[in-house]
Design a protein around this nucleic acid. Structure first.
Length: 681
RNA sequence: GGCCCCGUAGUUCAAUGGAUAGAAUAGAAGUUUCCUAAACUUUAGAUGGCAGUUCGAUCCUGCCCGGGGCUACCA
């Protein structure tokens, strides 16, 4: 069946050409759904033709309307308001359109398989449990995969796991030195949480060690410290917890923050401090004041100064030296280190798998940085031979993108080691090897890396990969909390597992308040709460344009009223309830249609177009908006018009067919967001 | 400093260059002898500023103001 708007567009172009000798491309004819405050189904915008027709808007509208009425049998009547030609289609057309879509086996199923796209999302770091930001990333990437697949691509869902490097050794070292052999089993912690705990522990120990080193360095020669002060300063990293910060009379604030207060002008911040119940000695206070100065200085330093200071810190830190040693051992394949690494990784993956399962996302192929981090080197060498890259005096390899309005970018360090960009090049090449028919890679990564991907795609293009121009960065904005930015250091991250548990719980509470589920089996109820809670969360995160930064309000995310997933799910359940009562039915063709019916059907017919647009833009929020629109229209339709008690069989059959198609369309659309819909709720 | 993104009702989000800028929430007022009231109806409320392009600008261009990001031999 030809799309009616297409048909009108062709007819319009024909008329303009034949009668007025004005050539217009069919796709330039602008046809919109008529706004609800005007009479009609579709509107042709005729402003663009006024000049060529040498007519006033109303005249042109009438003239064009008359000819369209004659040319297109589906058009029943028209009206003209200013430059808008509103066309009304016949009831017969609408019933036929509904019947035709309903019996079309292709309408709600995935398109023919086109090119192969690889969609990368999640890509976590094994040190950090998944959080709210990962949820947006995963839901987006997963949904885009589904949408692309639906509209006719072969899709490989993938991720690259950051499982190597200094930072990974940090958690390993902390576990080795402080862990006492703790495992997920003995601690009762999820594997990823356990490893994350030791990553944090390393950071804390490192921070304390630095404070001690600095204070030692700044200790005035004539100062006499008390025993506990000396103990505080000289304690080893492993015993960093010997004196907890609680023993300072400054509540939970750490030393650094207190010192900050001091140089911010509040000299008295030190006065109240005690250590082991005793006031501080003058000498110790003086050292602290010097330290405050030191911190103050460090805030005004330049990049270079900061970099060299950091390097110095790392070189002087026994803790950091042990981490480096561990990394070297790892790279050399030391069995003991590898075994530790494998063990801790397996804990993490078990934890992640659990989280992914609840999130309802999955992957077809996994990549690990530990396996790919050396891959880019060879390609850089090839590029060097081809003259795409160049070598600097120190032997480091660079690419010059200044001609493209970008910078010079490092690809290999002077010592031959790789950087992030090298690895990404290597991984892309690896994927080409793994999937020779690859046509596109889509990277789901936050917008702070916009520049990185611009550079990467340019390099891939220069290297001659023919699919490089088709690569896309599915860039998304940060998720903000009402309290501001999420910062792991300040403990303001929202943990993914906690959040999911919370929304499911909220769904349970409101469901029980409604009290509609009494005859439902316990297990079915639990599944429903899961469906509603996770559905609410996904919908909340997906309904916002990915490119935009968004606000996450925990209160609002568990709400089930308004523009939410459960609102759409409810509408589906409502349709299903009607259909259950109706039983078997014959689609009908009424003589007259009401406005609500037309509106709903028009929206249903938009389905394919909306999905194609969402695929093209990699934008699930378009699908979410569509779901809301459909649900609203159905609810109005349901409220205003009787279905089972309709005036005659034709009308009843038509409304039931509308109901059925609405349910199917909602289920399919929500499915593309990764959200399931219930039969009843 | 250079480059990039974002400024829409109190708040959170919409709007291929098109009609009177839509929803949702929060506020006010209603609808159940009737197919699921997690619904529906009514009400009030917004395009940061100044120019330009256009028949027509929230959208395109320029400048200004405000918010964020990138600008690492980190990943």
């Amino acid at each position: 069946m030809m799309d009616i708007t297409q048909k009108i567009a062709i007819a319009t172009a024909d008329i303009l050409k034949m009668s007025y000798d004005h050539a217009v491309e069919t796709h330039d004819v602008q046809i919109d759904a008529t706004r609800k405050e005007f009479e009609g189904d579709y509107t042709v915008v005729i402003f663009p033709y006024l000049r060529a027709l040498k007519m006033k808007p109303e005249e042109a509208g009438d003239a064009l309307g008359d000819q369209l009425l004659a040319a297109v049998p589906e058009i029943e009547s028209f009206n003209v308001i200013k430059g808008f030609l509103n066309l009304s289609l016949s009831a017969a057309y609408w019933s036929e359109a509904l019947a035709s879509i309903s019996s079309d086996g292709q309408w709600l199923t995935r398109g023919k398989s086109g090119g192969l796209s690889l969609v990368e999302y999640s890509s976590p770091n094994t040190n950090k449990p998944l959080h709210l930001g990962h949820l947006r990333n995963n839901f987006l990437g997963h949904s885009v995969s589904l949408i692309k697949e639906f509209t006719g691509n072969e899709v490989i869902k993938t991720q690259i796991i950051n499982d190597r490097g200094v930072h990974i050794c940090k958690s390993m070292l902390a576990w080795k030195e402080l862990g006492n052999g703790e495992t997920p089993d003995t601690s009762g912690l999820k594997g990823d949480k356990l490893v994350g705990k030791y990553y944090v522990k390393f950071d804390q120990a490192f921070k304390k060690e630095q404070e001690k080193i600095e204070l030692n360095r700044l200790q005035l020669s004539d100062s006499n410290w008390s025993d506990s002060e000396n103990l505080f300063i000289s304690g080893s990293a492993a015993s960093a917890d010997t004196i907890s910060s609680d023993e300072w009379h400054i509540g939970s604030m750490d030393l650094q923050n207190t010192l900050k207060q001091v140089y911010d002008g509040d000299e008295s911040a030190l006065d109240g401090l005690t250590l082991k119940g005793k006031p501080l000695t003058t000498g110790f206070k003086d050292s602290l004041l010097s330290y405050a100065e030191f911190i103050k200085d460090s805030e005004t330093e330049t990049y270079e100064q900061e970099a060299s200071r950091r390097e110095a810190i790392k070189n002087n830190s026994p803790l950091y030296q042990r981490v480096r040693k561990m990394l070297i051992k790892w790279e050399q394949g030391d069995p003991e280190t590898i075994a530790l690494w494998k063990m801790m990784n397996s804990w993490v993956y078990e934890g992640f798998d659990e989280t992914y399962a609840r999130m309802g996302v999955s992957f077809d192929k996994l990549y690990h940085e530990s396996e790919t981090y050396l891959k880019g080197k060879d390609i850089v060498k090839v590029g060097l031979e081809k003259g795409i890259f160049f070598t600097k005096d120190d032997g480091s390899v660079w690419v010059n993108l200044e001609a493209d309005g970008l910078d010079q970018k490092l690809l290999l360090r002077a010592d031959g080691t790789t950087v992030y960009m090298t690895q990404d090049i290597g991984t892309a090449a690896q994927r080409q090897e793994d999937y020779p028919s690859l046509q596109q890679i889509i990277y789901t990564v936050g917008d702070e890396q916009d520049y990185h991907f611009k550079v990467l795609f340019l390099i891939l293009e220069k290297l001659g990969y023919d699919w490089a121009p088709a690569c896309r960065h599915l860039s998304y904005g940060m998720v903000d909390l009402p309290s501001g930015k999420m910062k792991s250091r300040e403990g303001t991250v929202v943990d993914a597992d906690d959040l999911m548990a919370e929304v499911v719980d909220a769904a349970k509470i409101s469901s029980e308040e409604k009290g509609k589920l009494d005859e439902m089996e316990q297990e079915e109820q639990e599944q429903l709460f899961e469906m509603l809670g996770i559905g609410a969360l996904k919908f909340y995160l997906l309904r916002v344009d990915p490119r935009k930064r968004m606000m996450f309000d925990p209160e609002e995310s568990v709400s089930l009223n308004g523009d939410t997933g459960p609102f759409v799910q409810y509408t589906h359940a409502r349709c299903k309830a009607v259909l259950r009562k109706a039983g078997e039915f014959q689609p009908g063709a009424p003589e007259r249609l009401s406005e609500k019916e037309r509106q709903l059907l028009r929206a249903l017919m938009q389905f394919r177009t909306v999905m194609n647009g969402a695929a093209e833009d990699m934008n699930p929020s378009a699908v979410a908006s569509y779901c809301i629109d459909l649900a609203k229209m159905y609810n109005q339709f349901y409220h205003d018009l009787p279905i089972l008690k309709a005036e005659d069989e034709e009308v009843k059959g038509f409304r039931l067919a509308l109901t059925k198609l609405t349910a199917e369309t909602i289920a399919t659309s929500m499915g593309l967001l990764g959200i399931r819909v219930p039969e009843r709720m």
